[in-house]
Amino acid sequence: MSYKAKKCGVRFEPPAIILVYEQEEGKHRQRIMPIRNFSKFSDCSRAAEQLKNNPRHRQYLEGVSLEQLVRFYRLLKAHLNGESLDVSLNTIRREETIDPDEDLNKLDDRELAKRKSIMNELFEKNRKKKDDPDFEYNVEVDFPQDGVVESCGWDDELEDGF
């Protein structure tokens, strides 16, 4: 049986993850998965993994990424800590974007791995896999540089470099 996830969200009171899914074409159903034993001290990644692997829920959650579930638990945890939704959404957003000026050479393993996993989400999204019907091993595209008028804007500071 396949369940196509359409929408997924979190409810704070009483706490639950709610999934809207499609079982047969055009027919939407809602599944409410109550969150139990979760406190403001709980580990969000572990909770998300447990839900995703829960034998009763896992086939429904196949189309929902672990990252998204972790995000829901983080929102809930922030709520339990009395944080407003706006603030916690902003925190998550900030943590999940890459600061283009940050020098990643200077981070430790853990922090670097975090940034890499954020970048990897986009990589996987844009990735053409070998099994894709339109996959080509050799993709050549010519980007002529002679007619370029707009500069990348990064060169000026390079001038005094090497």
Binding site: F123, Q145, V148
Partner: peptide, 21 residues
């Protein structure tokens, strides 16, 4: 956009994507 680093050092320059190939 123009990236001048390669031109400045007269090096070949390629736009690539490891994701889409």
């Amino acid at each position: 956009k123009g990236f001048n680093f390669a031109k400045k050092h007269t090096l070949p320059f390629y736009f690539v994507s490891a994701a889409d190939g």
